[in-house]
């Protein structure tokens, strides 16, 4: 059993390194050109956003419609810091500060609002994100340049950073879910009353999930700022939160690998439909309705892609390694 766990760890690591190297080679040989790379950045940002929202909404069952608000905090914090300190350390510092700051706001917002349930929480988080947007646009405009937006943010994101933060975020979030604390979060989604009666402090776990989700959304925002070098408050409107939710719902609430798959799928669709942005949104809207009517659990349901596959792999590897050890 122990060996099995270790082996999956090693396999994951190998898979990650291989992915990294292959893409790096493709970039070096310019098969992945700037255009494809920018799509790749979008995909990675969406993966982090969806995985972190999934933690809040899919796993813990707290319906949030304000995820773009946390993303914007990470984006602006990182942008403002890297504009001042235009070095790699400035960027890393800005990214961490952005994530921490987003998490702090998540805590302040989560503590009072997470007492609300279902629709009410959704609306409260929506309101929160709108307020954050207005703050960036009209109150902090000395820092953020108001509605006109910030330009010329130094670009530090390359494939190595992108990969590190995306894989890291997904890994940390899945580690959280696969722990006793993660299970406590899931039990709140399943039945909050029963879970409290079994000793789970639901407020604490809801806030933990919310803050963790906000933290990673902050990272996604920082990556966005550092790659697309232009930020304006309106990008982080209600619609952005919805975009993230689409990914979570399509992939499956409660499935991280589902979020990853859906992020890739939707990015491909929208690249394909780039010339018709309205059509893209119409399709997203129709997708929502169709998924909810015909497959409310999304692509993956609450299952993870890795589970059965990795078991198969470890079965094969285990036998080979077993002989050697």
């Amino acid at each position: 059993m122990d060996k099995l766990i270790k082996n999956t760890g090693i396999n994951k690591l190998i898979a990650l390194i291989v992915t990294f190297v292959i893409v790096q080679v493709l970039i070096s040989t310019n098969i992945i050109n700037d255009y494809i790379f920018s799509t790749l950045v979008t995909i990675c940002i969406n993966i982090i956003l969806a995985a972190s929202l999934n933690l809040i909404t899919g796993f813990t069952g707290q319906f949030s419609l304000g995820h773009a608000g946390f993303m914007s905090i990470g984006a602006y914090t990182c942008a403002i810091i890297t504009l001042r300190y235009s070095t790699v350390w400035g960027f890393v510092g800005g990214l961490v500060a952005g994530a921490v700051f987003a998490a702090m706001v998540g805590f302040l917002v989560g503590l009072p609002t997470l007492r609300l349930k279902g629709d009410y929480l959704a609306i409260a988080t929506l309101g929160m994100a709108e307020i954050i947007k207005i703050l960036f646009r009209n109150v902090l405009d000395d820092l953020t340049n108001g509605a006109a937006g910030l330009r010329g943010i130094p670009q530090f994101i390359n494939w190595a950073w992108l990969f590190l933060f995306t894989a890291g975020s997904v890994l940390l979030i899945s580690n959280f879910i696969n722990s006793s604390h993660g299970r406590a979060c899931i039990s709140i989604r399943e039945d909050e009353i029963a879970s409290e009666a079994m000793g789970v402090n639901s407020t604490k776990y809801k806030v933990t999930a919310f803050v963790t989700g906000a933290f990673f959304a902050g990272i996604a925002g920082a990556i966005y700022a550092s790659y697309f070098y232009y930020l304006k408050p309106d990008y982080f409107a209600f619609k952005k939160s919805i975009d993230i939710l689409v990914i979570v719902v399509l992939g499956g609430m409660g499935s991280i690998s589902g979020s990853v798959i859906a992020a890739i799928l939707l990015a491909l669709i929208s690249t394909y439909l780039q010339a018709f942005p309205e059509l893209n949104m119409v399709i997203n809207g129709a997708l929502f309705v169709i998924i909810m009517i015909f497959r409310p659990q999304g692509i993956m349901g609450s299952k993870e892609l890795s589970l059965s596959l990795i078991k198969k792999w470890t079965g094969q590897f285990g036998r080979k390694n077993g002989g050697a050890a």
Binding site: G118, I242, M281, V282, G285, A286, F288, V289, M292
Partner: peptide, 18 residues
């Protein structure tokens, strides 16, 4: 309820962008 709420958001997107 969440499923219906998501559907409602979908309908909204559909009408707006349509």
């Amino acid at each position: 309820r969440i499923a219906v709420l998501i559907t409602a958001i979908g309908v909204s997107l559909f009408i707006e962008y349509g």
